[in-house]
Design a binder for these strands. Sequence first.
DNA 1: CTGTTAGCGCTTTCAC
DNA 2: GTGAAAGCGCTAACAG
Lengths: 345, 345
Amino acid sequence: MRKKVTLKQLAKELNLSISTVSKSLKNDREISQKTIARVKELAEFYKYKPNALAVSLKSSRTNTIGVILPEILNHFFAKVLNGIEQEASKHGYKILTCISNECYQKEVDYVEMLSNNSVDGLIMSLSQETQITNQLDHIKELKRDNIPVVLFDRINETIDCDKVIIDDKKASSKAMQHLVDSGCKNIAIVTTISNLSVGELRCTGAKKIAEMYDDVSYHMLMINEVADVESIIEEFLTSNAVDAVLGLDETAAAVSVNIAAKMGLKIPEQLSVIGFTDGLLAKYSYPKLSIVSQHAETLGAIATQRLFKRLAMNPSAKNKAVTEIVETTLLLRASTLPVRTTKQL
Amino acid sequence: MRKKVTLKQLAKELNLSISTVSKSLKNDREISQKTIARVKELAEFYKYKPNALAVSLKSSRTNTIGVILPEILNHFFAKVLNGIEQEASKHGYKILTCISNECYQKEVDYVEMLSNNSVDGLIMSLSQETQITNQLDHIKELKRDNIPVVLFDRINETIDCDKVIIDDKKASSKAMQHLVDSGCKNIAIVTTISNLSVGELRCTGAKKIAEMYDDVSYHMLMINEVADVESIIEEFLTSNAVDAVLGLDETAAAVSVNIAAKMGLKIPEQLSVIGFTDGLLAKYSYPKLSIVSQHAETLGAIATQRLFKRLAMNPSAKNKAVTEIVETTLLLRASTLPVRTTKQL
DNA sequence: CTGTTAGCGCTTTCAC
DNA sequence: GTGAAAGCGCTAACAG
């Protein structure tokens, strides 16, 4: 079993010094063409690859970015990860992926683990527990270690760093507005994420619109934890005669649709449905659901670009933190009625 | 902006040598308790963390494993990744995640990228293009670099390395058997992955069973590329009076169900459906689909354990490659009829 | 008990 | 043109 080739070995075999070999491989003009050729040939022969560890240690750049996600089975985060990966790889960067599993302690551990010079920067979305308990020291300490962070989606205002978010409030307003415009009068707002920053914002946005209309009423259905979401929603829909459901997260939307189907409700004739989701439902549901598309992959790409910009910045010129907002799209399909109200001119 | 603390700086500040500091932090019994206490206090104060790069360079262990996946938006791979991550983190390992996007060249690039001492080992599933074109040198060369690989799901028999697979043939046989036993006579086998190793195996398994029965006929519907899967399946179901669909992959299964719903076919009365999928459909469909569960997370965990075992092995005692087989489960739900045939005693 | 030294593999400055 | 030497941060064998 042959060991991995190093500059040293190439040098010995060629009767050259290590530095000459190193320079040759970089086409340093100090070195004669003949030598360069010799070196390259042998390097090629042995398939020499510079030891990434040594290069990083020397240069203090790892070309790696750390990504800490609350979950990966949630399609939204999977898409964000995909966006990050694409963008990172385009720039020759690798990504270290960690999944906090919505758990504060795991998140802390991962931040610790990665802040040992393992990565050049971090992209992360806070775990549910972190947001609920509001423990943020582990993030704030990254500043002291001089490692830049970009927070996305599940952010916290008090942390001074770059952020990329969705305008959740506006998005849910738009969705609610559509329901109202298409004639819905009695709307259920269903959420299983009321304890997350984004959950609150979506709530606020939806309510704001509903409250603008005297003839529109809404019901909030907040479901916590891993309660039996299905039966809660079923019970709710049975005892409340709503004509629309706005699902503020994937679970809420998905379950609502299935329960409606089970109850024999016709969509959209009897029940209009709009869901915050990211393509999963859209792809696998019938009738096709109207959705608030969060452009998760774009979000991932933007977060990555942000981080690259930050990394490229002269650290002394530490500009103020930037918050970028990704616009959502309301994608109307078969699960909602067309707009009925005549807008005033 | 304070720079990251190193042993050197601690040593200077404490008027000790670097090695004494290093040993103190390791509770080396050679060092006096008093010194250990002093060192630890200062280290704590500065939140000293050993530079992972330097440690790795020294020890030639990165505590990182590379994971190369064909896709991440496919729920199956997301689940596998989750399984890998959980298992790895349990052992204090980080994972470098790469997504080949079904593209041979990206896969090659990633293998190159990671085999520069960036990882201790690799877990991967071959990209579609790699399987089709059968170019495998990049994987085989890993052996020369002495970096262990565990291949899962999309494997290749000619590569000498550990493998973790699902018994796809048996799984599809089981599924087909159930359809037959529940009285289906005219069964569509729908696949969009006939060009993958797993696709072929599933095909073979299903056909084998169908062909055992004189009164059962089957139709193969192989859909290639990103053709308009929906219309092809719709057309097929319209012109062929089948009473069951066996979807050999997620797309095939999902689209079949939706089209059936669209066509007004009652499931399972008029059409039984079983799909190879990994919980996605199950979670979001109504009626609940019968599925072949591939236990993706288990698969990921097992692959990781395999890799750890390999890493722990004395390299000179390079045992033969091991192939582990993960059993599937046929999860029967509302989309299939109960078994009708009376089995002979 | 503590310190010196060498070395992991590489880059880079400075001599020759 | 080429090479020697220092150093990135750490560990470990060996001296003292």
